[in-house]
Design a protein around this nucleic acid. Structure first.
Lengths: 250, 250
DNA sequence: ACAAAAGTGTTACATCTACACCCATGT
DNA sequence: ACATGGGTGTAGATGTAACACTTTTGT
């Protein structure tokens, strides 16, 4: 036991603070870009930095509940997909206090979502993921000593974002996770565009068509209006296909 | 901001406590069993339950450091492999207090490790993983109202163990993670036994041999004494092979 | 002599890739 | 007429599973 006398300090002995941060991806079909939702936070120490939506874990909240709650509160969005990503606990990650963050990965269909400014003086915007990762710092001015830069993202949020993207890229190849980025129903061509956007390369259209046709869990769901066949993901059929030993693998 | 007046409560408003638990696997080559190291804890509420080694995250500790420290303290072991597994945060998982646990997966070569009793009245033993998972409860007595059972493992440690096993089974098929369960140098037959133990099925010896021969990162490292070729994993060559686009996939 | 392990060969089969080709339709 | 999407065919490369067979080695 620790050698404290009488009243043991409470916060003083210090537990780490526990928070949840959410990386939420969406696709902008107007310019085929993979986007992430970030908050432009006007509060003190975050000034100017972009940050992932997130917040503290309440004493009675599930981690997942916390993720949903913070996302709702700060952006008004409820994602169709949510999974735990990784827990970031470097003692130096937040200079203000020792904070451990359980990061979540979320996906949202299309993203014509109205992004609603949150109640706590933060505003949410969609950003192109690649340009964030390619430009981790930005110039904020210059003086005679030279230019000044600052990180575009607060704390270790860039690392979290990178981790999330790697997970998405990996998982989209052997699970139907990517379908949560598409509308409820989608054409075969939209499906192909999805893989081009996330993975960078587009599979041979002919073979792609053949492969998709084999998946009985991608069922036809009417037509486009322009005669194009609309597809829809059938989760039950997918699960039984997996149980049967089908591998997705696009 | 929360509407607190004057002295805001500290622990009262309550942060969850943060801990790390470690699932450490090893193989007993005498009977080809996959084992996990568990503590038989004699303290109050854990009485009789087996528990994963673990402990609280100090205010200045990395999560990974905490895993190494607790493992060292309670079992004397330093694993050759350690990765973060998942974070378990169900408010009900620990009836004593709200505790969130970051679980780690660790592997140790062979396991003739002397298991040293820890300093805190707990003793560590190796248990066969399958029998733990197959017998999650055990009979502890009976009265006229019927038999009494209790969980073999404390809290949600059974779920953590199951998660760890699933991760190991999945990852051993496409990464060299399993080699951390073998001695530094090993024969081809021992390698094959490893896959039998973890995955249950043993690959065709002939094809297996051919496949392993193709991996230039499994280098020959002398002989057995009995003329058997000893293999050794070359991490550098492996990384360059991966960069070259080799897939492990046994 | 026998069993276990080391090593080579072969066959049948499934899958993937890259590309050619055809048809229907809307403008 | 032409571009676009939908759909079929196929040759070559590659990989895998299953099994047969030989040689070596330890007891």
């Amino acid at each position: 036991m620790a050698p404290y006398k009488k009243n043991p300090p409470t916060v003083a002995i210090g537990k780490p603070t526990l928070a949840v941060d959410v990386v939420i991806f969406g696709i902008d079909w107007r310019d085929d870009s993979l986007d992430v939702l970030l908050l432009r936070n006007e509060s003190e120490q975050l000034a100017g930095h972009l940050a992932l939506p997130g917040g503290p874990v309440g004493i009675k909240d599930t981690l997942e509940e916390t993720a949903f709650r913070e996302l709702k509160k700060k952006t008004g969005i409820r994602p169709t997909y949510l999974e735990q990503l990784y827990t970031f606990g470097d003692p130096e990650r937040d200079p203000r206090e020792r904070a451990v963050s359980v990061a979540y990965l979320a996906l949202v269909r299309s993203h014509d979502h109205k992004v609603r400014a949150g109640s706590d003086a933060a505003e949410a915007y969609w950003f192109n993921v690649r340009s964030i990762l390619d430009n981790p710092v930005k110039k904020i001015g210059s003086d005679k000593d030279g230019d000044m830069y600052k990180r575009a993202l607060a704390f270790d949020h860039l690392e979290i974002l990178q981790t999330a993207l790697t997970r998405l890229e990996g998982k989209i190849r052997y699970t139907p996770i990517g379908l949560d980025l598409l509308p409820e129903t989608f054409t075969l061509l939209e499906l192909r565009r999805l893989y081009k956007i996330v993975l960078g390369r587009e599979p041979d259209i002919s073979n792609f068509r053949r492969k998709v046709a084999k998946f009985d869990f991608l069922v036809q769901a009417g037509e486009n209006g322009k005669g194009k066949t609309l597809l829809c993901f059938d989760r039950k059929k997918y699960l039984s296909a997996v149980a049967r030993g089908i591998n997705f693998e696009i």
